[in-house]
Amino acid sequence: MSIAISDTHSRRTWWRENQQKLTPYIFLIPGVLFFLVYVIIPIFESFWLSGYDWDGLGAKTWIGLDNYRELFDDEAFYTSLKNNVLWLVLYMLAVPAGLGIAIFLNQKVRGIRAYKSLFFFPFVISQVVVGLIFAWFYAPNFGLFYNLIEWATGSGIAILADPNLVTYGIIAAGLWPQIAYCMILYLTGLNAVDPEQIEAARLDGAKGFRMLWYVILPQLRPATFMAVVVTVIGALRSFDLVSIMTDGGPFGSSRVLSFYMFEQALSEYGYRMGYGAAIAVILFLIMMVFISGFIWKMVDDERKGL
C-alpha cells in the first residue's frame, strides 16, 4: 500500500515539475492532429490520386503521368493559368491600397470610428454576397456601372459578357474585400509601431515618404508578410467569385485553376477525379513556390537584422 502511495506521489511531483514545459505541447496536439488530417494527408492523397483515371465511384486505373501529359496539352488549362497569373499580379494592389487606407484611418480625429466601420464592412461579408453585389453592379441595362459607362460614352459595356474584360471585372470584385483584409493587418501593425522612433525621426527632419519608407515600413514587416501571403493565397484560390459571377464563362474565358479543378473533378462536365487532382497538384506547387520565397526572404532579413 505504501509503495502505491509513493508511486502516485512521485507522478504528481513529476507533473508539477514539468507542467510548464508540457502545457504548450498539450495545447498544440489537437491543432497538429487537425492540420495533419485535414491538410497534410489530403496533399499527399492528391499527389497519389493524380496518377489514376477515376470517376470517383468505380475502380481506379493507374495511368502514371498521363494526366499531366494531357494537362500540358489542354488549352483550357493554359487559359486558367494565364488568368491566375493575372489575378496574382493585380491582386497585389490590395497590399499598398490596404496600407494607404490604414495610414489614413490611423488618426485620432472625430468620427474616424465611423470611417473604420465603413472600410471594415467588405471584410465581414461573404464572398458569395460580394459576387452577387458586383454581378448586379455590372449587369446590362440596370447595373450602376453599366449605366455610368453608358451615360459617359453613349454605350454601356457588359463586363461579364466580354471575354477580354470579364477577368478584370471579377478581380475588381475580389479586391474590394481583400483591400479591407490588408487594411486590418496594417492597422494592427501600426498600433505596434514604436512612437519613440517616430518622434526621433521627426527631430531629424524626416517626414512624408521618407518617414514612411525608413521608419514605419521596417516596423511593419510582419504585417506586410502576412498581407502578401494571404493575398497570394486569395488570388490562387479565387474559386467562389468566378463560380458565382460567371461560372467560368463566357466560353471558359474567366476560368482559374481552382475552378477548372472543380469543373473537371466534381461537376457534370467531368467527374475526372485524377485529372482534377493533377490540376490541384499544379496549383499547390505554384502556391508553394510563392510562399516559400516569401518565407525565405523573411528569415533571411531576420538573420541580417533588417
Results as ranks from 00 to 15, higher is better:
Ile3Ala: 06
His9Thr: 14
Arg12Pro: 02
Trp15Cys: 06
Asn18Cys: 07
Asn18Gln: 04
Gln20Ala: 12
Leu22Met: 07
Tyr25Gly: 10
Ile26Gln: 10
Phe27Ile: 06
Leu28Lys: 10
Val32Gln: 14
Tyr38Ala: 09
Val39Leu: 12
Pro42Phe: 01
Pro42Arg: 11
Glu45Phe: 15
Trp48Arg: 11
Leu49Pro: 05
Ser50Gln: 02
Ser50His: 05
Ser50Ala: 05
Ser50Gly: 06
Lys60His: 02
Lys60Asn: 04
Tyr68Arg: 04
Glu70His: 14
Glu70Met: 11
Ala76Val: 13
Ala76Leu: 09
Ala76Thr: 15
Thr79Asp: 13
Ser80Trp: 00
Asn83Lys: 03
Trp87Tyr: 08
Leu88Tyr: 03
Leu93Cys: 07
Ala94Asn: 03
Pro96Arg: 00
Leu99Cys: 06
Gly100Val: 02
Ile103Gln: 10
Arg113Asp: 15
Ala114Ile: 07
Tyr115Thr: 05
Lys116Phe: 04
Phe120Met: 06
Phe123Glu: 02
Val124His: 04
Ser126Ala: 15
Ile133Phe: 01
Asn141Cys: 12
Asn141Gln: 10
Asn141Leu: 12
Gly143Ile: 08
Gly143Cys: 01
Tyr146Met: 00
Leu148Val: 14
Trp151Ile: 03
Gly154Trp: 00
Ala161Thr: 07
Asp162Tyr: 08
Asp162Gly: 15
Pro163Leu: 03
Pro163Gln: 03
Ile170Asn: 02
Ile170Gly: 03
Gly174His: 01
Gly174Glu: 00
Trp176Gly: 12
Pro177Leu: 15
Ile179Asn: 05
Tyr181Val: 15
Asn191His: 06
Asn191Ser: 13
Ala192Tyr: 10
Glu196Val: 08
Gln197Pro: 06
Ile198Glu: 00
Ile198Val: 09
Ala200Phe: 02
Asp204Ala: 07
Ala206Tyr: 14
Lys207Arg: 06
Arg210Met: 05
Tyr214His: 09
Leu217Val: 11
Pro218Lys: 13
Leu220Asn: 04
Leu220Lys: 04
Leu220Gly: 07
Thr224Asp: 11
Val230Thr: 15
Gly234Ile: 13
Ala235Thr: 15
Ser238Lys: 02
Val242Tyr: 01
Val242Pro: 14
Ile244Gly: 08
Phe251Tyr: 13
Ser254Leu: 04
Ser254Gln: 05
Ser254Ala: 02
Leu257Tyr: 01
Tyr260Ala: 10
Met261Gln: 13
Leu266Ala: 08
Leu266Asn: 09
Glu268Gly: 05
Ala277Met: 07
Ala277Phe: 12
Ala278Ile: 00
Ala278Asp: 02
Leu283Asn: 04
Met287Cys: 15
Phe294Arg: 09
Met298Asp: 07
Arg303Leu: 14
Lys304His: 03
Lys304Thr: 03
Gly305Trp: 09
Leu306Gly: 06
